[in-house]
Design a protein around this nucleic acid. Sequence first.
RNA 1: GCCUCUGUAGUUUAAUGGAUAAAACGUCGGGCUUCGAACCCGAAAAUGCAGGUUCGAUUCCUGCCGGAGGCACCA
Length: 611
Amino acid sequence: MTYQTVQQSIQSVITEAVRKLGVAELPEIRFTEPPSPDMGDISFACFEVAKAIKKNPAEVACELAEAIPPNEIIKEARAVGPYVNFFIRDEALFESIVLRAREDVEQVGKSDIGRGEIIVLEYLSPNTNKPLHIGHIRNACLGDAMARILESQGWKVERVQIINDRGAHICKSMLMYQKYGEGKTPQQDGVKPDHFVGKFYEMFEREAAEHPELQEEAQEMLRKWESGDKQTRELWQKLNDWVYEGWKETIANLGVESEKDRLYYESEIYEKGKEVVEKGLRQGIFYKRDDGAVEIDLTAEGLDKKVLLRSDGTSIYITQDLYLAELRAEEYPKASTCIYVVGKDQEYHFKALFILLKKLGLNKTYYHLSYGLMRLKEGKMSSRKGTVVHADELIEEVYNLAGNEYIKRYKLDFRAQRSDMSRLEANRHTRESTKRTEEEIIDDLKNQRQEQVFAIGLAALKYYLLSVDPSKDIIFDAEQAVRFEGATGPYIQYTYARMRSIRIKNQESRIENAARAQEFEIVLNQEERVIINKLAQFQSIIEKSAREYSPAHLAHYLFELAESINSFYHKHQVLKAEEGDREKRLALLDVCAVVLKKGLSLLGIEAVERM
RNA sequence: GCCUCUGUAGUUUAAUGGAUAAAACGUCGGGCUUCGAACCCGAAAAUGCAGGUUCGAUUCCUGCCGGAGGCACCA
């Protein structure tokens, strides 16, 4: 029996009962969650039915509840106000969720609603003049999580990036390097290579404020670059390679898998947009102004006029995006949808772009997954004011904090053990030797537990970014981003690690527990019911996150599940429980562990076995 | 000026038009001789303002007030 069967069974008894009241058909029977667990497992709101037969909803609820007798699934249907609340039989609940999940762990959190459709997902896509900052981290985490979520639901996701590797911005860094770089390399300066390049960009911004002529020099360099000047191209290549090298490290530290991404380089495609514009011109979609610029009038669509090609014939930002869309349509002919993970400051751009693509005959579904900006309490981040939160610094900070937490907890543990020991073996340890042992252990820990500590730090950061709905701006607060307590990634990891610990302390295999659990009469207490009802929602929550392109739903769900688990085993024993209860609870916790681990991985967060 | 988004406890976030507006942090008060205290239990504390639609509005509509972004031959 699956949970779906349980739901369908309840739906059909409602349909039947509703029919008795004289309502021929309901469009859809939807369930809601009762506000408190002692009110039932799922409930049905009677407003629509009441409206159809012009009766009081509370009255309708009573009549429906009376018309629904208990059966092998329903223990009771109880009218509460305008709702009919259903109490599902313990065995049915346990079997359809816990045992069912145990039978096929692989399938937990998977579905095929995407039906193998291909989605091209563009994300990250930075400029090559600077190291990555906190905004890029939000983008990367959001794109990564969405790709994972969509794939779990049966879509095939092709991750792509457009690397903005040419233009005035990179020429600014190049110019400064040429003037003041003295031919140095990042290695010589001992600086991470992307930061090395970024320093020159910042230098330009400072210098140009006092010497405006530098702007013209940068433009001149851009012209040289465009004409293919050998020296300029070599310099450009050198600086860009440094930046790529630096990014690679940052992204790897973030744990975002981007090695297989299809990378498009602006330098390779920026001129080809002209062809698309020419084509549109021939088709009469665009028109040429008197000054030679190509334009389209989008006032009918509620936008303004939009220039697509400069009067000197050179292309602009949107020209390139037109070509890129066509190129991708060729490379991924079967793709049904293209998603652009780009900040919401570009909403207007994408609105215009999508209209243009439609006019050009590209009939894919285009979606701008727009996310809010990262701001600071003091206002917008500014590289000039030096208030940019760099990705590397932030990652290092969460790592260090997680390490401190880890050591702190280990020390407490260690000291407790030591005091036990000293009671047993009085004075065997001198102050000196104990101290050395402690330091040794900490050193050892630092080496051995690096990956775990890293996973915990990243969990804090990623959860913080993903638990906010993408559409909302985040006012970045470092203290909140690196928290380990409350509604955080580490809290969920902790819950998982604790369950694993219980499982390891138990000698029997999990299959055996699950099988044996069936041998006993299943009686659930309230905490267990809360957990099971929560588990039942996992699939629909992932679907919601996929449909609405918002990992935040999943993030909140995982916290709630973890919370219910922590409440549960604070109140009830597992290993020391009576026979029957013990097997039942072990099986339940196994499923919880699977769901937490799976859910975290969909967010790009690693579950740790110990912490 | 025009367009879009946004306004919920002190702070950060929840709530397909439905039940007593839900959590976290912070504050205050409890709980480790207990399968892991990165935990648990409890308290105080909120829908910007004014209308409208509705049996019912945090949610939809209008106006006002506040915040953000956009409206380039920049990206």
